[in-house]
Write a protein that binds this DNA or RNA. Structure first.
Length: 109
DNA sequence: ATAATGACCAGGC
DNA sequence: AGCCTGGCCATTA
């Protein structure tokens, strides 16, 4: 397996600041990973020394089996949740959203 | 090699 | 709002 890729993913997750969250897709994109699923798989196999609780699903919810623990840890960091959902619009890691969306097309009609 | 599963995502109904 | 389907990649049987 690609240990290098694993390291990049883990490094990206480590960069998530406290009080913020990121989605699996964001991590996949920032860490140059092919898909979000690989990120989840990595966390499933090896989540040691990682702020795994700052990684959420795209809709702002967390994985079912860890939800309780995750919500508790996030709340301790200052990230409240309503009905098991986090407000990504407010707490999403800024760096994860930054990617350059190509400017408005100059070839506009 | 195929099939199934998983801490996923987006679209359709 | 919920539920289903297909796509995605890696691992396992």
């Amino acid at each position: 397996m690609d240990e290098l890729l694993h390291e990049m993913i883990r490094d990206t997750i480590r960069k998530i600041p406290a009080g913020r969250v990121a989605t699996y897709g964001d991590i996949a994109d920032l860490s140059h990973a092919p898909t979000a699923k690989l990120v989840g798989h990595l966390l499933n196999t090896d989540h040691t020394s990682l702020p795994w609780h700052r990684v959420l699903r795209a809709n702002g919810t967390c994985a079912p089996h860890i939800a309780e623990e995750q919500l508790r840890l996030l709340e301790e960091e200052g990230v409240p949740s309503t009905n098991g959902k986090i407000n990504l619009h407010t707490y999403r890691w800024e760096e994860a959203v930054k990617p350059q969306e190509e400017d408005n097309t100059p070839t506009l009609f």
